[in-house]
């Protein structure tokens, strides 16, 4: 400490003193510079706004990037797949256990199950990003099917089925999950029908849909034996609107690999057509052939 004090003494005596005039001049310049700096700061304020806008632009750009990244992450990581399902425009996506509605959230587990089912889906996420899982194309997923106006079957059933019958064989489609088929009736299927029959099909709001074992159906057509062709529970809700046939399917009822759908314009009285040798049910032997009402919403069919 003593050293410091002594040095202080020594150093203080060799302290140079600035020239007072130079100091005054420097002070004036100093304050003037401060004024200029203040003026520049005021002028620069619009620049600040510009910068702020740039910051906002940058921030919004980053936000868009973030959404994109999250969207990409969604595809890569099922944990992120908690988007909202919108009206798909073609098929309403349902999960095997919990039917989904518009606005429902698909859990990662459900999505994994959907993926594991081997079906093709197209999901729409709420943020506008479309998420495709094994999608066949960029457009709507197309159902591969064979829709036939079945004259031979209609002849066998005479007028019991309303004059004509259409059969639907799903070649590839949704299995193991409830899904709604949307079939265009104008795609050649009714060409084999008369104009009057066509008119009947197109004007019928509700049609009757029977799930029929394909081999049994072929045997029936071949032999005329239609005993216990279908059971009461093998029916699906179906509806025609805007030249489109809508069918709600259920994996518990309809096996696309073994069964075909038979559409009729009226309920079939199986008792008069097939008889009931063993007391088993024939076509239309169930309660009402028309299984519940179905609604159409946004081009899709909604199950009751």
């Amino acid at each position: 400490m003593s050293d410091y004090r002594e040095m202080d003494e020594v150093m203080n005596h060799i302290k140079p003193l600035p020239d007072s005039k130079a100091k005054e001049k420097a002070k004036a310049a100093f304050l003037l510079k401060a004024e200029e700096a203040m003026e520049n700061e005021k002028k620069c304020k619009p620049k600040f706004w510009k910068n702020k806008q740039l910051v906002y632009s940058f921030a919004s750009g980053m936000a868009a990037m973030l959404i994109l990244v999250v969207g990409m992450m969604s595809v890569l990581n099922p944990e992120f797949l908690a988007g909202t399902v919108r009206n798909t425009g073609y098929y309403e996506i349902n999960s095997p256990y919990t039917p989904l509605k518009n606005g429902d959230v698909i859990s990662a587990d459900t999505l994994q199950e959907m993926r594991a089912s081997g079906n093709k889906f197209k999901l729409y996420m709420e943020n506008g990003l479309a998420l495709y899982l094994d999608s066949v194309s960029d457009g709507a997923v197309t159902l591969q099917y064979n829709l036939t106006a079945h004259a031979a079957l209609a002849e066998l059933l005479q007028n019991a089925a309303g004059g004509s019958i259409i059969t639907l064989k799903v070649e590839s489609g949704f299995t193991g999950i409830p899904v709604k088929y949307e079939v265009d009736l104008m795609r050649g299927v009714i060409n084999g029908l008369t104009a009057a029959e066509q008119q009947k099909w197109l004007s019928n709001l509700y049609v009757y849909c029977y799930i029929v074992d394909q081999r049994q159906l072929e045997r029936y057509i071949e032999t005329g034996l239609g005993d216990a062709l279908v059971s009461d529970h093998k029916m699906l809700p179906a509806k025609i609107a805007g030249e489109v046939l809508y069918v709600n399917t259920n994996p518990g009822l309809f096996d696309t690999g073994k069964e075909v759908l038979v559409f009729t314009l009226q309920k079939i009285d199986t008792g008069s057509i097939f008889g009931s040798k063993k007391g088993g049910a024939g076509i239309g032997s169930g309660p009402e052939g028309h299984v519940g009402d179905i609604e159409i919403e946004g081009g899709n069919i909604i199950a009751p």
């Binding site: 600035p18 130079a22 310049a29 100093f30 304050l31 510079k33």
Partner: peptide, 14 residues
């Protein structure tokens, strides 16, 4: 020294 001191204070003002 005067120049440098003056420049230092101009920077301070700025």
């Amino acid at each position: 020294t005067e120049d440098l001191t003056s420049e230092t204070f101009l920077k301070v003002a700025e």
